[in-house]
Design a protein around this nucleic acid. Structure first.
Length: 186
DNA sequence: TGCACGATGAAC
DNA sequence: TTCATCGTGCAC
């Protein structure tokens, strides 16, 4: 499998978000390889983005976002779910892409449509916060057979508090894909 | 030290 | 629309 290089992540966050669509998320644990095709993401572009965890500045919780690109930022939310992000741009920038939904490819036994369900289905939790995505047990790879896709965009989910940033179209998904997590304004 | 609330999901 | 469930950030 062709693992994405560090340079893929060390770019403009919106570009990384769009190009992650169609790629494979791979997690190997306990002798099981789980693979999902990324069909929905959201870009959190930096500390000036009022919807981003990095907008409050560097804290113990979000420090991975301010670290080097190509690492996993995993946080715990609503007392019961984890969310997986990939860190982008340059060290110190504070941006990431939230992975929101996967289409099952291999060993995904439960639904992975929605960021909380994605982590549950892939077996990802707090242990993976700060994990290097150039490792051999958690990474993003080129798909076996790349497909032509159409990208749709919309406002991000659950960020109504973020004033004008709530209206920015920073959610990207594969148009018409049935595994996208909600209202697909195709 | 306390407390309101969240980048969610499922049920009603 | 409500609720489960708990860590975080900020107020006091």
């Amino acid at each position: 499998m062709q693992k994405l290089p560090r340079a893929f992540y060390a770019r403009d966050t919106v570009t990384v978000a769009r190009e992650l669509l169609g790629k494979w998320l791979v997690h190997r644990a306990d002798g099981i390889e789980r693979i999902g095709r990324i069909v929905e993401v959201e870009a959190y572009v930096g500390p000036h983005d009022l919807a981003s965890h990095s907008s409050r500045g560097l804290t113990a919780r979000n420090q991975v976002m301010f670290g080097p690109p190509g690492h996993a930022y995993v946080y715990f939310i609503y007392g019961m779910y984890y969310c997986l992000n990939v860190v982008t741009e340059r060290p110190g920038h504070g941006a990431a892409v939230l992975l929101r939904a996967l289409e099952p490819v291999k060993n995904l036994n439960t639904r992975a449509s929605g960021p909380g369900l994605l982590c549950r289905a892939m077996g990802i939790d707090r242990r993976h916060n700060g994990h290097d995505l150039l490792s051999d047990d958690l990474f993003v790879a080129e798909p076996d057979r790349p497909a032509r896709i159409l990208i749709a965009r919309s406002p991000r989910v659950g960020v109504a508090y973020a004033r004008h940033w709530a209206r920015r179209h920073l959610r990207f998904y594969i148009r018409g894909n049935p595994f996208v997590s909600r209202a697909r304004s195709d």
